[in-house]
């Protein structure tokens, strides 16, 4: 998990990228991928607790620019973007948790990471059992 979001992504305007549509969108591509694809991938990677731990270990979660980027990524919790998340539960939960400074500080601890793993697994199973 060495991949980290390109820094130039953070300096982009706070307007979320347009979701894919029928008509072609002319916007710059990054290594052959659109901003929409890259941001979708990154926000879903946040669902993985180990990735969060990795980001914390890279000192990324303390950078103001990165925190602003996390705040910007909250557009994924709204339509029309939310329907593109294939891991909606953990993704949005971790995205909200990442808005808290204490969480950003604490996720470097492996204990919290393991707790998140456990809770995520339990939630996935329990939710389906109850319904």
């Amino acid at each position: 998990m060495e991949s980290t979001p390109a820094q130039d992504m953070q300096t982009n305007s706070p307007i979320p990228p347009k979701p894919p549509s029928e008509e072609g969108i002319c916007e710059p591509m990054y290594g052959g991928f659109s901003r929409f694809e890259i941001e979708l991938e990154f926000v879903q990677s946040l669902a993985n607790p180990q990735y969060l731990n990795h980001l914390a270990s890279q000192q990324l979660l303390t950078q103001p620019a990165f925190v602003a980027y996390l705040a910007y990524l909250r557009y994924w919790s709204r339509p029309p973007y939310v329907k593109y998340l294939t891991y909606p539960g953990p993704t949005l939960r971790h995205l909200e948790l990442l808005q808290q400074e204490t969480f950003r500080q604490n996720i470097i601890s492996p204990d919290l990471m393991n707790q998140l793993v456990e809770a995520g697994m339990k939630a996935a199973v329990d939710w389906h059992r109850e319904t």
Binding site: E2, A6, Y30, I38, S45, Y87
Partner: peptide
Amino acid sequence: PFYPWPQEHQIRGGALASNQLLS
């Protein structure tokens, strides 16, 4: 194994990783 989130190999094989490689 089932995980309700993307796995490390998926993240490693994604767009961000390839961009990282490019840079």
